[in-house]
């Protein structure tokens, strides 16, 4: 018991010094404190080693297999990233204008030490640029979901609608997203709504198509149940179609977000304003190649996070 309190005391001192550096708020520091405290608690540590040694002596092969499988998960991605860095370094040595990983890293540290500065509309921190892009994507994507998902339901539910819309969809879907930009500029007479329009039109197809495919895949058995129970159209949609289609819909949503995030960079390069795409273009004009490379990573990481968040949401909604 006393051991715990002592270790906690000493930790407090460490944490305090750390807090000044991190300055992230007491809540976060607290959780860290507890975690470290349990590890530093000698009694608990003893117990843990006892447990692990017991495990080791009882089932050495199982333990080995566990370590092996963990390594199997962790090592390949690490190798992959190292390989990427190696290739990058190699190329940067060949072409002096391309900065290597280390130089880029230093530049990134500097850049992200103050992501939210604001020196007028043409010079804002990278944080503002990311947020501006995310806002456009959210708007365009949200509108696309609002239109695309109900449309998908209607198309999947009614054969007539499906036949009516299929030529339109087949015709418009393969069109490159940026081809829609002039139309947007023409109609809205402003750059920002035009960019949102491009996001909308490119994000809507996966949602329409996946939702309608899901609806048309509803097993006949379930529809027979609906018929025998004489369910109302509303009940059919809420109790049968919607739960069944949800996983398909979420796939569509995920694809859409991916496309939207893909397209926003290109759209913003053309429309200007604040945004990660415009930022890339701006840095190209400044010939600041480090920042362009950083932007590529930022776009990739944000896309990854969006994808991850949606996958988690989709998992939550799945009925299996």
């Amino acid at each position: 018991m006393s051991a715990t309190s002592i270790s906690k005391e000493s930790l407090k001192a460490i944490m305090q010094s750390k807090e000044t550096v991190v300055s992230k708020g007491a809540a976060m520091a607290d959780t860290e404190k507890v975690e470290i405290a349990t590890v530093a608690n000698p009694a608990a540590a003893k117990k843990m080693t006892k447990k692990t040694s017991a495990l080791l002596s009882n089932k050495p092969s199982k333990r080995k297999a566990q370590i092996y499988s963990v390594l199997n998960v962790v090592l390949p991605p690490v190798f992959g990233i190292l390989l990427l860095l190696a290739v990058w370094t190699l190329i940067s040595h060949q072409t002096p204008s391309l900065p290597g990983p280390l130089k880029t890293w230093h530049s990134a540290v500097e850049l992200f030490s103050d992501p939210f500065y604001n020196h007028g509309p043409n010079d804002q921190g990278v944080g503002w640029n990311i947020l501006a892009s995310l806002q456009r994507v959210a708007l365009g994507f949200g509108l696309a979901a609002l239109v695309g998902i109900p449309l998908g339901f209607i198309i999947g539910r009614f054969e007539f609608m499906s036949r009516m819309t299929s030529p339109i969809i087949s015709l418009l879907r393969p069109v490159s997203p940026l081809a829609w930009l002039p139309i947007g500029l023409l109609v809205f007479k402003a750059a920002n709504p035009a960019a949102i329009w491009v996001i909308f039109i490119s994000a809507i197809w996966p949602m329409i198509i996946n939702t309608s495919v899901g609806v048309s895949k509803v097993p006949q058995d379930y529809m027979n149940v609906a018929k025998v129970l004489n369910l109302s159209e509303w009940k059919i949609v809420t109790k049968i179609l919607f739960p069944f289609v949800l996983p398909y819909m979420m796939t569509g949503v995920r694809l859409s977000i991916g496309v939207a995030w893909l397209v926003i960079v290109a759209a913003e390069m053309l429309t200007g304003g604040v945004g990660i795409g415009f930022w890339v273009w701006d840095e190209w004009n400044n010939l600041n190649v480090e920042h362009i490379i950083i932007a590529i990573f930022v776009v990739g990481i944000v896309g990854l996070l969006l994808e991850y968040a949606l996958t988690q949401i989709a998992k939550k909604f799945s009925y299996e």
């Binding site: 058995d221 379930y222 027979n224 149940v225 025998v228 129970l229 004489n230 109790k239 049968i240 069944f244």
Partner: peptide, 19 residues
């Protein structure tokens, strides 16, 4: 057409899995 006075027990139960 189908009606509630003729209830069906389906071959593969056909329960809705999310309910």
């Amino acid at each position: 057409g189908p009606g509630p006075e003729r209830a069906v027990v389906f071959q593969n139960h056909s329960l809705l899995p999310w309910l």
